[in-house]
């Protein structure tokens, strides 16, 4: 990790990794979509709507995963002054927010045929909505200061304070017996879901992960390049000394 605190070294690595992650994302997405939409059976209770699960659940996992990555890298950035970590946090936020939106919307489209309601104020749904606001708040906060470095530092405090929401989302379905179904994949004793459904689920989860890595690399390279542009513009303004 410390080796890649040097942005230039990170950029070299990132440039190499980007096309590979893109390719991986495409392959996994294609495989995931094939199994999710074509080569898997409908659920005997939920029918074809179970296919929504193959978007909803991996997106939900990613919404939590991206937040944790964002909070950890923001923390590393502010505590150890690791410039690449800062960039990783900033780049993760919009992606995490996107996955959260997808989680909420896909959940609504699943809930309507299944429960009869687009939305209920169930613990997990509410906490996921709070997660979206945390993402949006983080993005607003880091852009609210004239000094970008100050923005990132403030954002780190917010991101770390909001981490408490992540276990709430994860365990809310166990603590409160309300509407959202309890855990059936990531729990003690292993998954209780059928193999033919586990395959598309895991493939889509991996596809989303690969996508995240790809977009993260692209955005981080853009952000680091932007930093260089800012520095060069400053030098241009002040004259070459």
């Amino acid at each position: 990790m410390l080796r890649y605190a040097n942005p230039n070294r990170f950029m070299r690595l990132a440039r190499v990794l980007t096309p590979w992650s893109a390719g991986l994302a495409v392959l996994l997405t294609a495989a995931g979509l094939w199994f999710a939409l074509v080569d898997s059976p409908p659920d005997y209770q939920q029918g074809e709507t179970v296919r929504i699960m193959y978007v909803h659940v991996p997106a939900a996992w990613m919404s939590l995963f991206c937040y944790v990555v964002m909070a950890v890298s923001a923390g590393v950035g502010v505590i150890w002054k690791h410039p690449v970590a800062d960039v990783a946090a900033k780049a993760s936020a919009p992606v995490g927010a996107a996955f959260t939106v997808i989680t909420l919307i896909s959940g609504a489209f699943w809930g309507k045929p299944m429960w009869g309601a687009w939305w209920v104020w169930d613990a997990r749904l509410t906490a996921e909505l709070v997660l979206l606001f945390l993402y949006l708040g983080y993005i607003a906060l880091i852009h609210a200061f004239d000094d970008p470095a100050r923005g990132l530092k403030a954002g780190a405090v917010l991101a770390l304070v909001g981490v408490i929401n992540v276990p709430i989302i994860k365990f809310s379905v166990d603590w409160w017996n309300t509407l959202h179904q309890p855990a059936s994949v990531v729990k003690m004793g292993g998954p209780s879901i059928d193999g033919s459904m586990l395959v598309p689920l895991l493939l889509m989860a991996l596809a989303f992960k690969a996508y995240y890595i790809y977009v993260l690399l692209v955005k981080m390279r853009a952000e680091i390049t932007a930093g260089k542009v800012r520095a060069l513009r400053l030098r241009q303004v002040h004259g070459t000394a």
Binding site: L33, L37, E48, T49, R51, I52, V55, H56, A59, P94, V95, A98, V101, I102, I105, S106, F109, W110, K112, P113, Y211, Y214, V215, V218, K219, R221, A222, T225, A226
Partner: peptide, 24 residues
Amino acid sequence: YVWPVYGIALAVLVGVLVHGLRAL
């Protein structure tokens, strides 16, 4: 119900990617 989910997911994720690529 099923197709809008995949459509919206695709649109959002591609949108974020395109935005990132343009910025880069």
